[in-house]
């Protein structure tokens, strides 16, 4: 069976999620198409992170459906989302600071020689190869460096390199630039463009509309848990996006 290229990679229909009295999401429709970077925009507390957590299996919606390539799917755990090719880079916790680059890179997906014994040699070689040849992070010369010794930009690069290596279909980035310098941010946006050339789709959450406009193909705007618009880049402008977010 071949899947027509117009079928979304991932489609969410009527997703609702309540936290106590807070209706974080109500009846949200959202989709990620093939080879597309979607900007997920909205004010503080709009529900962006909640939607990302639902797609990555950390949170389960109260109601709604998920389709992968048009087929119904369930995401109840991180393992489920991993099987669907979803990888997340969180606002606050993409990597463990006190662990080395290699141990973060393969966290939860360690290569073993059998009996649960790590194949450290092979993992080190892979990490160095990816970091040097693919993501081209400067200043990293050993896979044993602790992540806490890296700059914010280098950390994001490691997380992105991980997504590339594990052949992620969709990368979800929740405010990846919030702690980055101007130069690191520019570098990250470059990585995003590179990822797209590699055939990876992405969801990009940011409060910086210029960054969003520069790197995204389409925008979905949330306000108080509801989708108030989904626009292609060609049919909108930074100005219009700004007005939409502020008005609601």
């Amino acid at each position: 069976m071949t899947i027509p290229s117009s079928t979304p990679l991932l489609a969410l229909k009527g997703i609702s999620k309540q936290y106590g009295h807070v209706q974080a999401l109500s009846g949200v429709d959202f989709q990620i198409n093939r080879n597309e970077i979607v900007g997920l925009l909205g004010d503080n507390g709009a529900g962006k992170s909640t939607l990302v957590r639902i797609m990555s299996g950390v949170e389960f919606p109260d109601s709604g459906q998920v389709f992968r390539d048009g087929q119904p799917a369930t995401i109840k755990s991180r393992k489920d989302s991993e099987k669907l090719g979803i990888e997340t880079i969180y606002q606050d916790s993409a990597l463990v600071g006190s662990a080395s680059i290699m141990r973060n890179f393969f966290a939860g997906r360690e290569l073993t020689k059998g009996l649960g014994i790590l194949d450290t040699h092979k993992m080190n070689a892979i990490v160095m190869d990816i970091l040097v040849n693919m993501v081209r992070i400067s200043g990293i010369n050993s896979p044993d460096i602790l992540v806490e010794a890296l700059s914010g930009g280098q950390r994001q690069a490691v997380a992105i390199a991980r997504a590339v290596y594990f052949k992620t279909a969709m990368l979800l980035l929740d405010e990846p630039t919030s702690a980055l310098s101007v130069r690191e941010t520019a570098k990250l946006l470059e990585h995003l463009a590179e990822l797209k050339r590699e055939g990876v789709s992405a969801v990009f959450i940011t409060h910086n509309l210029y960054h969003a406009y520069e790197s995204c193909d389409r925008f979905t705007i949330l306000s108080r848990g509801q989708v108030i618009g989904s626009l292609a880049k060609a049919e909108t402008s930074v100005r219009e996006l700004n007005d939409l977010i502020v008005k609601y």
Binding site: V58, R78, V96, R103, A107, G108, R109, G116, L118
Partner: peptide, 20 residues
């Protein structure tokens, strides 16, 4: 592998959960 999980869970439990 289990040992690596000890460190990751102790280092930052949320991240460890996020990677499954």
């Amino acid at each position: 592998k289990l040992g690596n999980h000890f460190y990751l869970v102790g280092g930052h439990e949320k991240t460890a959960i996020a990677v499954g």
